[in-house]
Nucleic acid binder design. Structure first.
Lengths: 202, 202
DNA sequence: ACCTGAACACCGTTCAAGT
DNA sequence: ACCTGAACACCGTTCAAGT
């Protein structure tokens, strides 16, 4: 036993993250266990706890990577056309991303930290940065509004898109089918923007 | 052992549901276990499985009751005033309900059925009926739209409100604080309705 | 008919003991 | 320093055995 050093600490960390991600991608959160990960990376369960505090930390790492991927997808959206077009593209990209990664996205929705654990700041920052492209695209529509209202509009837009996508992937709360989600997102963004213009006109 | 018959089957069923609900209300889904329920109702764990197929079934029952409660709350909303006012009241009631029952509401979001289990029709029906008050309130705003568009608008409204409330109670995905949720819901409903009018005017 | 509780196959996490 | 694997305190679920 002891001291194998087949992998550097970083390699081992990456191996664990990758295996855990694979498991969630295949079988969802319920298929994940420390023992199963250990089996796949060919280390004992105890070794996981040299690398991560616990499973929650490992999962938070996986979730953060997923947020990063989404952020990149949103950054790559082209910024031509009207604000409406841009916002629709962003919303669509968000929806497509969740549909491309259903099991991993569900992880984000299902996995809760224990009540006594705070969400780390670096994680919160990632969330915040997802709003930036939305804010940018909204700006031309909102020159009559103050900063607070702009932030608010971006959050509302985010929440709406999130609501539709999460409802479409969960089914337990939803009269929205996965298939119709695209239409619903489109309806939402278009109508909400039309409403902003209305308010602006007042 | 065996055959105590202190409680009728119905009483026992109710007892189990009540204890499980208490546990979730106190400690959330993660605090729940068959053994803990059994301890509280003073029966052995095995007895639970005479009454329910498994824990998922018990949880589905609890969730259905929660949906019923919410439906009643929405039915009791007064129907006076403009459509906007009615819709705002409905959205606010939804939000308030989730904030009044945070742990139980979270159960609805966290608890997933195993992949091989379909959501039962009676459960789906309850979901559908939650949309009715929304549709009723929307109708006056949508006489230029066909049935499909009305359904669509109701679903979008539902999804938006759901998105905001669920983001505000989860924190893991959310730049929206619990405190600001009311404002966000109000912003959303008002702006979305303004957008509908705009579309109508086209 | 109804209920028990041991049993089975799992968990997450810790930590003394090994190299 | 790094890793093991037994151990602890749990799980959900089943089912022979009891009354």
């Amino acid at each position: 036993m002891g001291r194998r050093s087949i992998h550097t600490p970083d390699e081992l960390r990456e191996l664990i993250i990758q295996s855990a991600t694979d498991i969630v991608e295949q079988d969802g959160l319920s298929g994940l266990s420390a023992r199963e990960i250990a089996k796949r990376v060919n280390y004992s369960p105890g070794t996981l706890y040299n690398v991560f505090e616990n499973l929650d930390d490992l999962l938070l790492t996986i979730e953060a990577r997923l947020l990063d991927q989404l952020a990149h997808r949103l950054d790559d959206i082209d910024t031509t056309g009207t604000p409406q077009q841009r916002l629709c593209r962003l919303a669509e990209a968000y929806l497509t991303f969740t549909q491309d990664n259903p099991k991993l996205w569900n992880l984000l929705l299902e996995h809760r930290l224990p009540a006594d654990r705070e969400i780390p700041d670096w994680y919160r920052a990632k969330l915040g940065s997802l709003l930036s492209p939305l804010k940018d695209a909204l700006t031309p529509l909102l020159d009559g509004f103050d900063t607070h209202d702009k932030e608010q509009a971006a959050r509302t837009l985010w929440a709406g898109v999130h609501g539709i996508t999460s409802l479409s992937t969960t089914a337990k709360l939803s009269p929205i089918t996965n298939h119709a989600a695209g239409q619903t997102v489109g309806d939402f963004v278009t109508t909400y923007i039309a409403g902003l213009k209305n308010r602006h006109a007042d």
